[in-house]
Amino acid sequence: MSNLRLALPSSGALFEGTSKLFSDCGMGIRRANSRRYTADIPQFPGVDVLFQRQSDITTQIDSGSADIGIVGLDRFYESRLERGESVLIHGDLGFGNSKLVIAVPDAWLDVTSMADLADIALEFRSKGRDLRIASKYQRLVKRFLNQNDVNYVSMVYVSGGLEAAPVIGYAEVIADITATGTTLRENDLRILLDGTVMESQSVMIGNARTLANDQNKLQHIRQILEKIDATLLASDNHRVSARVEGHSEDKMAPQPKKQREFIGSYKRLIENIKPFSEPVQNQ
């Protein structure tokens, strides 16, 4: 009977948010030091914690190298296999809120929308060039561009420091994740009015086939989810509970319904992994 393998971000905002969430839930992670890539949770002796780069976690879940993990929703959608075995277990863990956006240089005064960007791409094409867009989110951005009829673009893969791309000259436009937009503004970049590719937050994902066929691991996940749901439900600052379409009392009224839906994350998990359940072989 093998332990549940939980992959967590090894650094950055999601590492900090995950550490705080687990501590708040009474599931403090015990890690010998910051350079060690394994840890445990004393309250759950059947769980092994693996610290990994966030960009690798979805791939590891799909391959079965880890059973469950915490990533940004943007990373999950960018990296998962189209017909893979990774599924969403919990859709909002209450931290890591951000947006994947399209940003252009401030000097492009007449470019404020995706339609304007489509026109610019046509202008570049008429001059024998493609508009270059720097991003590490090739898959999500290309799909968004296609949906907005922005053609004749060349995607430039960059893993970091995208804000410098227009200045250095290897791309005219960037698509990057941002929480506040401050870094973009400080580098003379502006988000297009309708240039939000997607909103993102921290989520829990898992390997559906493994979970559907290992009741011991499924029981561990149930206990973890119950603690997480209870903690987030009790928190006045939780994003799902606090998000409303407006600020009036009438608009805030539906919040209890959202909380009741939110508490059923384990039930939704069971439904998601059913197709991956393998028949028990008769001995």
Rank of each mutant, 00 (worst) to 15 (best):
141 V>N: 11
256 P>L: 09
229 D>P: 00
7 A>S: 15
41 I>Q: 05
251 K>D: 08
128 G>F: 10
24 D>A: 07
245 E>C: 13
241 S>K: 15
185 R>Y: 03
59 T>N: 14
81 L>R: 11
10 S>C: 14
198 M>C: 08
210 T>I: 14
174 I>C: 01
275 P>F: 00
17 G>D: 03
271 E>M: 06
60 Q>F: 10
55 S>A: 07
52 Q>K: 13
137 Y>S: 14
190 R>F: 08
40 D>H: 07
94 G>N: 07
28 G>A: 12
114 M>F: 04
260 R>H: 14
268 R>P: 06
55 S>E: 11
213 N>P: 10
208 A>E: 01
262 F>A: 07
93 L>V: 15
78 E>A: 04
67 D>W: 02
67 D>R: 01
91 G>L: 01
249 E>D: 10
153 V>W: 11
193 L>T: 12
3 N>F: 15
179 A>Q: 12
92 D>E: 13
209 R>Y: 07
266 Y>W: 10
265 S>I: 01
21 L>N: 01
212 A>W: 00
200 S>M: 05
47 V>T: 10
172 E>W: 12
124 F>G: 00
73 L>H: 06
128 G>N: 12
175 A>N: 01
105 P>W: 02
273 I>N: 07
207 N>S: 06
121 A>G: 01
196 T>K: 08
239 R>G: 09
123 E>I: 10
51 F>K: 00
169 G>H: 08
22 F>H: 03
77 Y>N: 06
136 K>M: 06
58 T>W: 02
184 L>H: 04
97 N>V: 15
30 R>W: 04
259 Q>K: 08
210 T>P: 06
21 L>E: 03
90 H>G: 05
223 Q>I: 08
185 R>S: 09
2 S>N: 07
130 D>P: 01
39 A>F: 00
101 V>L: 01
53 R>S: 11
60 Q>Y: 09
128 G>C: 09
227 K>F: 05
124 F>R: 08
256 P>T: 05
79 S>K: 13
183 T>L: 04
280 V>D: 03
125 R>C: 04
224 I>G: 01
97 N>I: 12
217 K>W: 05
98 S>H: 06
240 V>Q: 06
12 G>C: 10
165 A>K: 03
178 T>Q: 01
278 E>S: 11
274 K>N: 13
71 V>G: 01
95 F>H: 12
56 D>P: 00
97 N>E: 14
273 I>P: 10
230 A>I: 00
199 E>L: 06
257 K>A: 11
273 I>T: 05
102 I>P: 02
59 T>V: 09
60 Q>E: 11
154 S>A: 11
160 G>D: 14
129 R>D: 04
163 E>Q: 13
273 I>H: 08
130 D>C: 10
140 L>Q: 13
41 I>F: 13
211 L>M: 10
249 E>Q: 09
144 F>W: 03
277 S>I: 03
19 S>E: 13
156 V>M: 11
198 M>R: 11
204 M>D: 04
223 Q>S: 09
196 T>Y: 04
148 N>A: 05
248 S>H: 09
167 V>Y: 03
67 D>V: 00
9 P>V: 07
265 S>Y: 01
104 V>Q: 04
76 F>A: 08
14 L>N: 12
159 S>C: 03
11 S>R: 15
158 V>T: 11
65 S>D: 11
119 D>S: 12
272 N>A: 13
186 E>L: 15
52 Q>M: 12
26 G>T: 04
184 L>F: 04
137 Y>C: 05
6 L>G: 07
48 D>W: 02
110 D>T: 06
